[in-house]
Simulated scan of single mutants.
Amino acid sequence: MKHYIAASNPMRPQFNPQAGYAARHFAWHFDAGVGTITLDRPERKNPLTFQSYAELRDFFGALRQATDVKAVVLTGAGGNFCSGGDVHEIIGPLTRMSMPELLEFTRMTGELIKALRACPQPVLGAIDGICAGAGAMLALACDLRYGSAATQTAFLFTRVGLAGADMGACALLPRMIGQGRASELLFTGRAMTAQEGLAWGFFNQLYDSAELLARVQATARQLAEGPGFAHGMTKTMLGQEWSMGLEQAIEAEAQAQAICMQTEDFRRAYTAFAARQKPVFQGD
């Protein structure tokens, strides 16, 4: 199955976001430091395929070297976010694969989540309509999530005879909404409503569908104008401190902050403050 999982369109690590990127399985737009990834199969509610999993994995991996990209918005076309793995292009073929092939696939899907979490840029989800299965995991892996009243988020793995433990769900979801709520969603596969998601901390905010993407992109631009290196450090520490005790975390943050104090952005902030001006961060 390696022909499914290999990158369908290999990308050099030092790609130029401003020159564009000819994605095969999603749309990419870059403007003023903000990149927008749009899952673009609206006629099927933007399902994932073997190839789109692989391309997204490699793309998020390459973002680690894309210093011009300061923030990323992840969204879907046609009023829906993502319906999960394509029933005919993924689910069907999986029933005919050997155990080594299946493990190769499940590890690859997890690599996508790890790549999304490891890229230094804040990733903001603009999540409208259907957000299910692997799509719900992509949303969960984002740093910030914004939905609409129409958003329905379902970790529906048990509906197809699989465990709720998929792509890191049993690690990420309880930390986001609590063990009891996560257990219910992962056992039952029922859809979490937008209002539940907001009340439980899954969504940072809800907007009207018509303005959702624009509002999220505006938030991304605000982050893009901030200290990029420091944002990357914040994201790193949010991930690393899950497995630390308080004493370890405080020491790790002391070291992280000392590193940030060596940046030019830190000096720019002080100079601007002294001059009663707004700092212009450059990410170095």
Rank of each mutant, 00 (worst) to 15 (best):
W200R: 02
A210S: 04
P122L: 11
A62F: 13
K114S: 06
V73Q: 00
Y207A: 03
F157H: 13
L212Y: 02
F273Q: 14
R181E: 09
Q257E: 05
I177L: 07
Y53L: 11
R44P: 08
M261W: 11
T67W: 13
T188N: 04
G178S: 01
T38S: 15
M233H: 10
V72N: 06
R41F: 13
N16Y: 11
T153Y: 04
E196T: 10
L238F: 07
F203M: 12
G133Q: 11
W200Q: 10
D265Q: 01
L162R: 14
T75C: 15
A139L: 15
V87F: 11
E264G: 15
S52T: 06
T193L: 14
R276N: 08
G79R: 05
P122F: 12
M261I: 01
E55G: 03
Q222T: 09
M237I: 02
I5M: 14
R64W: 09
C82W: 06
E241W: 12
I127V: 15
L39E: 04
L162Y: 04
G135L: 13
G78S: 06
G33E: 06
Q240L: 12
I90Y: 00
T193V: 15
I37M: 05
G228S: 12
G61F: 15
K235Y: 06
Q152D: 03
R190F: 14
R190K: 14
R57S: 00
F266E: 15
Q240T: 10
A136H: 11
P42H: 00
G147H: 10
Q277M: 02
T158Q: 08
C119Q: 07
A191K: 03
A171M: 09
Q179G: 05
Q51E: 08
Q217S: 09
A224P: 02
S52D: 01
I91C: 09
C170P: 04
K45P: 09
R41E: 08
R24T: 06
H29M: 11
G164E: 09
L223S: 10
E89K: 03
G168D: 00
A269E: 02
Q222C: 05
I37F: 04
A249Q: 13
A269T: 03
R159Y: 14
S209Y: 01
E111A: 12
G189S: 09
Y21A: 02
R267C: 14
A32I: 11
